[in-house]
Simulated scan of single mutants.
Amino acid sequence: MFTASTLSGSKPEQYRQLAEQAKALLHGESDRIANAANLSALIYHALPNLNWAGFYFFDGTELVVGPFQGLPACVRIPLDKGVCGAAATTHQTQRIDDVHAFPGHIACDSASNSELVVPLVKDGALVGVLDLDSPVHARFGVEDQEGLETLARLFVESLG
């Protein structure tokens, strides 16, 4: 498994390496819990300056915490709350440089200062979100967003 110290090259190249590792982890497996567990561990240990990486799944009403790496998290998130709710309702990635300035931000971990949330959508239906938090302000750039959107797409494709 990759760690932050084993990835090499430019940031896009590092995300290509992560995508290849993700493909290998997801290959032949369609269970969303198993795949979310492996993918959250891969991301958390491969990318620097994260304090949380994981999944929330849509249960038809709200987002419910799934597999993750980091401190204990909020269990349920209403769709009209926080960065995760915004990504879920708009079906658009939310890249937030300062979560404290985001209206309705939910502070599950007060150490988090920036966040990137990628919606997980299959055949037009919300499956959930991939959520990453960082203690560093403005931790996530466009290259991070693109790389994590690729990993999220690979996860959704694994669902069969």
Score class of each variant (00 low, 15 high):
1 M>E: 13
2 F>R: 07
4 A>Y: 04
6 T>N: 04
6 T>R: 06
7 L>A: 09
7 L>T: 07
8 S>W: 05
8 S>N: 05
9 G>H: 08
9 G>N: 04
12 P>M: 15
12 P>Q: 11
13 E>Q: 15
15 Y>H: 02
17 Q>K: 10
18 L>Q: 12
19 A>G: 15
19 A>Y: 12
21 Q>P: 00
23 K>Q: 14
24 A>R: 04
28 G>H: 14
30 S>E: 09
30 S>Y: 08
30 S>N: 15
31 D>Q: 10
37 A>C: 09
38 N>I: 07
39 L>F: 11
39 L>W: 11
39 L>P: 09
41 A>P: 00
41 A>K: 13
43 I>A: 10
44 Y>C: 04
45 H>S: 07
45 H>C: 00
47 L>N: 07
49 N>A: 15
52 W>T: 00
53 A>H: 03
53 A>T: 03
55 F>M: 08
56 Y>L: 15
57 F>E: 04
58 F>R: 12
59 D>F: 07
64 V>Y: 02
65 V>S: 03
66 G>A: 01
67 P>H: 14
68 F>I: 00
68 F>A: 00
69 Q>T: 08
70 G>Q: 09
70 G>L: 09
71 L>P: 08
74 C>P: 00
75 V>A: 09
76 R>I: 12
77 I>W: 11
77 I>H: 11
78 P>I: 10
78 P>W: 09
81 K>H: 12
82 G>S: 01
82 G>M: 03
82 G>T: 08
83 V>A: 07
88 A>H: 07
90 T>W: 02
91 H>Y: 04
92 Q>V: 05
95 R>A: 15
96 I>R: 05
96 I>Y: 02
97 D>N: 05
97 D>W: 04
97 D>C: 04
98 D>Q: 09
101 A>R: 13
103 P>M: 08
108 C>F: 00
108 C>M: 02
112 S>W: 01
112 S>A: 10
113 N>P: 00
113 N>G: 00
114 S>W: 04
116 L>I: 15
120 L>I: 12
122 K>H: 10
122 K>T: 06
123 D>R: 11
123 D>Y: 11
123 D>H: 14
125 A>K: 14
126 L>E: 06
127 V>S: 03
127 V>E: 07
128 G>C: 09
131 D>N: 06
131 D>I: 06
133 D>N: 02
135 P>E: 03
137 H>F: 09
138 A>K: 13
139 R>C: 13
140 F>T: 11
140 F>L: 07
141 G>S: 11
141 G>I: 01
144 D>S: 05
144 D>L: 04
145 Q>D: 12
147 G>W: 05
147 G>T: 09
148 L>F: 10
149 E>V: 05
150 T>K: 05
151 L>I: 08
152 A>H: 01
154 L>F: 03
154 L>V: 03
158 S>I: 12
159 L>P: 01
